[in-house]
Structure formats: structure tokens, C-alpha cells
């Protein structure tokens, strides 16, 4: 019985184009106790880790999703005759990171943080649905306020907004930069 549940969940995840949340799985499988569903998911995930498979189930933007193994990138690109996937520009990335850490944020706040007018970059990010407008700020001019979307989480493989690189990780990077500089200066 439990095995069948596992297989049902596998089908549900397979057929979903967007990350399938635990909530949705539970809704669909309402006749089963929640603990049983959770256990089945756990077993399903484990079976994918232990078996030798080209595809995997990943957790992304608060849900489960099938993806290919990263090692197969080369051949998939060849199948689709693609050189490489388009990456975000560094301006877009910088703007996203400013929003992600200081959301909700207005255009003026984002521009001030970056020291650069970000009107255009925000437009691009909105088009890509990586950010969304969540309302207006109650301040002079009532400017629009922006937040990152679930698509943003999925794009970077984050489960939750709390998954963003932590302040510790960030200061680690900054420390590393410093170390490299010092090494360089000791060489010269």
C-alpha cells in the first residue's frame, strides 16, 4: 500500500511543470493520512538518491520537481542544438541581490544601494518574472514596491527565501578577497 502511494506521488511530480508543493500533494491525496504521505515522499526521494538514474527530484521554490542530473548538461545541450543557456547580466544579478536582501524595496531604494539608476534593469527583471510589484509605499509619490518571486527561488535553486546566501557566507567571500590581496601584496 505504501509503495503505491510513493509511485502516485512520483507521477504527480512528473506531470507538474512547476514545483509541486507538499500542500498540493496532500490535497490530492486527501484520503491518506498526512504522515503517510510525508513518509512516502521521503522514501521516494531516497530511492532517487540511491538508484543510479539520469534524473533526480529536486526541491525548488518550496516544491518538488524533476530535473536532469547536472553532469548530463553537455549532451542535453547537444540534443537541443544549444551552445549555452542565457545567463543574467551582472547588472540584473546585482539588482536582484539588492532586492532579495532588502525587500520590499522601491526603485529609488534599489538605485541608491547600487549607486546606479535601475529603471531599465527592473523592467527586464519584471519581464522575466523574477520580481513582482507588490503594491505602493505610503510615502511621497507612493512609489511601487518590488519583491522577488517564486520563479526567482526556482531560478537559483533555492527552496525558501531564507536559503539566500547568509551574512556569514557573504563575509567569508569578502575575507577571501582580502586574503588574495594580501597574498598578492606579499609577492610583490
Amino acid at each position: 500500500m505504501k509503495n503505491r502511494l510513493k509511485e502516485v506521488i512520483e507521477s504527480l511530480i512528473f506531470i507538474s511543470l512547476e514545483p509541486l508543493t507538499l500542500e498540493k500533494i496532500k490535497n490530492v491525496l486527501q484520503e491518506y493520512p498526512e504522515e503517510e504521505v510525508e513518509l512516502a515522499i521521503k522514501e521516494l526521494l531516497e530511492s532517487y538518491v540511491t538508484n543510479e538514474r539520469g534524473i533526480q527530484i529536486i526541491q525548488s521554490a518550496g516544491g518538488y520537481l524533476f530535473s536532469t542530473s547536472p553532469e548530463h548538461d553537455l549532451w542535453i545541450k547537444r540534443l537541443f542544438k544549444m551552445e549555452r543557456k542565457a545567463k543574467l547580466s551582472s547588472a540584473a544579478l546585482e539588482t536582484l541581490s539588492a532586492i532579495a536582501y532588502h525587500q520590499p524595496a522601491t526603485l529609488a531604494e534599489i538605485s541608491a544601494m547600487r549607486g546606479v539608476d535601475s529603471t531599465h534593469t527592473l523592467k527586464t527583471l519584471l519581464q522575466k518574472k523574477l520580481i513582482k510589484i507588490v503594491g505602493r509605499k505610503k510615502s511621497p509619490g507612493s512609489p511601487l514596491i518590488y519583491r522577488t518571486t517564486d520563479k526567482f527561488l526556482a531560478y537559483f535553486g533555492l527552496t525558501d527565501i531564507k536559503d539566500l546566501p547568509s551574512p556569514e557566507e557573504i563575509s567569508k567571500i569578502l575575507e577571501k578577497e582580502k586574503d588574495i590581496e594580501e597574498e598578492e601584496s606579499s609577492v610583490h
Binding site: D73, I76, A98, R114, G157, L164, P165, I173
Partner: peptide, 20 residues
């Protein structure tokens, strides 16, 4: 900080783009 975070995000982006 924002710049360092964007570097970390870049790395995540690269990892994620390899998963189809």
C-alpha cells in the same frame, strides 16, 4: 555585501542552469 551576494547567486545560477 550586495556585490558579494550577487557573486554567490551567480554560482547558484550556473549550478542550476545545468539541471534541466
Amino acid at each position: 555585501k550586495i556585490k558579494a551576494a550577487s557573486l554567490l547567486l551567480r554560482k547558484k545560477e550556473e549550478d542550476e542552469l545545468q539541471k534541466w
